[in-house]
Design a protein around this nucleic acid. Sequence first.
DNA 1: CTAGAATATGAAGGATTGTTCAGTTTGAGG
DNA 2: CCTCAAACTGAACAATCCTTCATATTCTAG
Lengths: 212, 212
Amino acid sequence: MPPATPRSLAPRKRPRQARAAVTLDAVFEATIQVLLTVGPHRLTTTRVAERAGVSVGTMYQYFAHKQALIYALNERYLEVLAEKIEIACHAQHGMPAQQMVEALIECYWQAKTERADVTRALYRSVAELDNEALIEAFAARADAATTAMLASAPDLDTQKLESITRTLLTVIFGTVRNAFERNLDEAAARELRGHLAVMCGALLDSRSGPLA
Amino acid sequence: MPPATPRSLAPRKRPRQARAAVTLDAVFEATIQVLLTVGPHRLTTTRVAERAGVSVGTMYQYFAHKQALIYALNERYLEVLAEKIEIACHAQHGMPAQQMVEALIECYWQAKTERADVTRALYRSVAELDNEALIEAFAARADAATTAMLASAPDLDTQKLESITRTLLTVIFGTVRNAFERNLDEAAARELRGHLAVMCGALLDSRSGPLA
DNA sequence: CTAGAATATGAAGGATTGTTCAGTTTGAGG
DNA sequence: CCTCAAACTGAACAATCCTTCATATTCTAG
């Protein structure tokens, strides 16, 4: 497996002192804020530095270019997200399948809604860069965690599990993303989640039904 | 209802002669090609003009700025897509509900897959602009067509139809989009579509089941 | 306390790019 | 054929922005 991050996008160096870590946090947060306030195509290294209370030169000590910054931001975000999913999946080991998918939906939805504006900003920022590696790595982790979870369900046959997992995740992730593009109010969002749970449950049942 | 296109993004003038229409087509196609070859953030007015075999000045007679060009491109694309959906929905009037959703999925998938690279390029290009109005207008048309179709199904109770329609479209559109971000091979894609049909069917059945 | 490493600075350079406009060419109608 | 409007041209301008580097500051280890 090649390194997850391409050479050209990798950070120049890692912070060794405490203040450097603080600086980096400030830069990331500033990037989000700039993304939110002026949009992706007016995101400027100077603007980010200004907002972070840092000099441009400082940023360029950690990131070789603007893309690398945005890449790192998304990488960081997906890292947190993947971890959340893994934890949620692990917590459901041995539970009934329906509860599993509901927990999965809830976890993903929750993670995305916590800071909805940030989610939106990041969704837009990704278009600027070559995110294949990023997405693939994330998908692999989510796939693995979900498959492991489902395999432990007592009420599920373990055949075709990979295929079902892939569908589940594609549907859930895609639906949530699309829900963010339309601006659903609280009620509509709740309904959507309910429907989604029903639909996912049906997919899990689809084998056991006709076979009985 | 306000005009679908905001003033600042509207085209400057419409072509009145035949050659102007040809020029516009060339410009749109060139925009797609540039989007494909160099990506959204290196899309340059000069580059587009060059590729289209046209002068930059010509482009600026029709579009007030770069954003307006990209906006118009997406508008044109969504117009075609909405029409396809409306036709597909109309063709299913009076049919069983399950067949309806399958036709809907097939239509959307087909439309997106026809020129997969273009689809991907457009998905990315939208991030550059304020697409709320665009998406809302498209969603409204798709919603209307789908609701009308489902209302004509003999095997469906017409309660909660709007809510169900919204879910169906959010799930289908979102899933397809996400499927494009992962690079699914033909087999996986076929499976996904099958699963999606099952899941959508389950949503339609979810009321009639427990009530029987 | 000191030396060297890590971190931070920000003005300046260089390159790109969006947009205009004065002028030319092409087409349509009479 | 003539005239006017539509369509097209592309060099030039102005603005923005990414990135560097020589220098200054701060921290840490010995």
